[in-house]
Write a protein that binds this DNA or RNA. Structure first.
Length: 275
DNA sequence: CATTTCACCTGGTGGC
DNA sequence: TGCCACCAGGTGAAAT
C-alpha cells in the first residue's frame, strides 16, 4: 500500500485528528511480527503520554510523544506500514477490522488503530532519553537538489529502477512511483544507473518530485485497499501511466505497455517513449 | 563493499 | 464450487 504519498496522506490525517490528544490505554495483539520493540515496553511507554505531532520520514510515520500537552518530545512511536498496513483514527465502537494489531484509546474518545493483514509492518517505541530521534536513512525525494540527486547514482552498476527502490539512497520511492517517475522522465527502467546523463538525471529528479506531489494532492494511489487515516481512498491510481497497465496502450503514443521483472519487482514501461 | 535473491505473511484473482 | 498457481504498495538477511 504505502509509498511516500500514501504515508504522507496518512500522517497528515492522523496529525489533524489526534494532535494534542492523550493516550489513555494501549492494547497490542498477540502476533509478534509487527513489534520492533517488545509489546510490553510499547504499552508502558505509550500510556499516559501526549501526542505532540505526527509527521512522515521516508515511508515511516513518526508520532512525537511528551509528558504534557505542550512539551518537548521525550519519546517517539514509529509506524511502518509494510505492504498492507493501515493507521486509522476511529470511534471506539467502530467495528474491529480483522488483523487489528494495536489499539490506542485517546482522551478525546477516539481510537488510533493499526491494522495489517500481511504483518510486514512494524511498530517501534523510542525513548529519546536513551536513543537519538528517528530519521530515515536516505534523502527525501521532494526536497533533494540536483547535485546531490546526481551524486546518489554515481558509479552504481545496478538498474536505475533498483537504485530508486533503495531506501538508503532516496527514502520514500516504491514500486509505483519508481515506474511512474521513470515514464515521465522517458527513461527505461533497466538502464544502468551510472550511465544516465546529467540531463536525464535532472529530468528524473523533477519527474519524481512532480509525480509524488501530484499524488499527495490526490490522496495517494488506491491500487487495491489503501485508505487514509479516515478510511478514504486516494485517486492517483487514475493518473497512472504505466503501473499495472501491462499490454494497455501508452497514454502518449498508444504502444502497448510492457512488464518485466527488475530487482525482483514488477516493472512497467513504454518501449517507445522510454529509452 | 555492492548487488541479487529469497523469505516473511495473507488474500484476491483467474484458469481448469 | 474447489483447488492451485500466481500476484500484490516493502524490507532485511543470506548468498553471491
Amino acid at each position: 500500500m504505502p509509498e511516500l504519498p500514501e504515508v504522507e496522506t496518512i500522517a497528515r490525517g492522523v496529525q489533524e485528528r489526534v494532535c494534542g490528544d492523550r493516550i489513555e490505554q494501549a492494547w497490542f495483539g498477540s502476533h509478534p511480527e509487527p513489534f520492533k520493540s517488545p509489546a510490553g515496553l510499547q504499552v508502558r511507554g505509550l500510556e499516559g503520554r501526549f501526542i505532540l505531532a505526527v509527521h512522515r520520514s521516508g515511508k515511516h510515520i513518526v508520532c512525537e510523544l511528551g509528558t504534557a500537552r505542550v512539551s518537548q518530545p521525550s519519546a517517539q512511536w514509529i509506524v511502518h506500514l509494510g505492504m498492507t498496513g493501515r493507521l486509522l483514527v476511529t470511534t471506539p465502537d467502530a467495528p474491529l477490522a480483522p488483523h487489528t494489531h494495536a489499539r490506542l484509546s485517546l482522551a478525546s474518545g477516539r481510537e488510533l488503530r493499526f491494522v495489517d493483514p500481511r504483518r510486514f509492518g512494524r511498530l517501534e517505541f523510542r525513548d529519546l532519553s536513551c536513543r537519538a530521534a528517528f530519521s530515515a536513512a536516505g534523502v527525501d525525494p521532494l526536497t533533494i537538489q540536483a547535485e546531490e540527486f546526481a551524486g546518489l547514482f554515481h558509479g552504481r552498476k545496478l538498474s536505475i529502477k533498483a537504485a530508486l527502490l533503495n531506501q538508503a539512497l532516496l527514502s520514500g520511492v516504491g514500486n509505483i512511483y519508481a515506474d511512474e517517475g521513470l515514464f515521465r522522465a522517458r527513461i527505461r527502467p533497466s538502464r544502468q544507473a551510472a550511465r544516465l546523463t546529467r540531463a536525464e538525471l535532472e529530468r528524473l529528479r523533477l519527474a519524481l518530485s512532480e509525480v509524488l506531489r501530484h499524488s499527495i494532492e490526490l490522496g495517494g494511489s488506491s491500487v487495491s485497499d489503501y485508505v487514509d487515516a479516515a478510511g478514504v481512498r486516494g485517486f492517483y491510481q487514475l493518473e497512472h501511466c504505466v503501473y499495472q497497465r501491462t499490454a494497455e496502450p501508452c497514454r502518449v503514443c498508444a504502444t502497448p505497455i510492457r512488464r518485466i521483472v527488475l530487482a525482483g519487482r514488477s516493472t512497467h514501461y513504454c518501449p517507445r517513449c522510454q529509452r
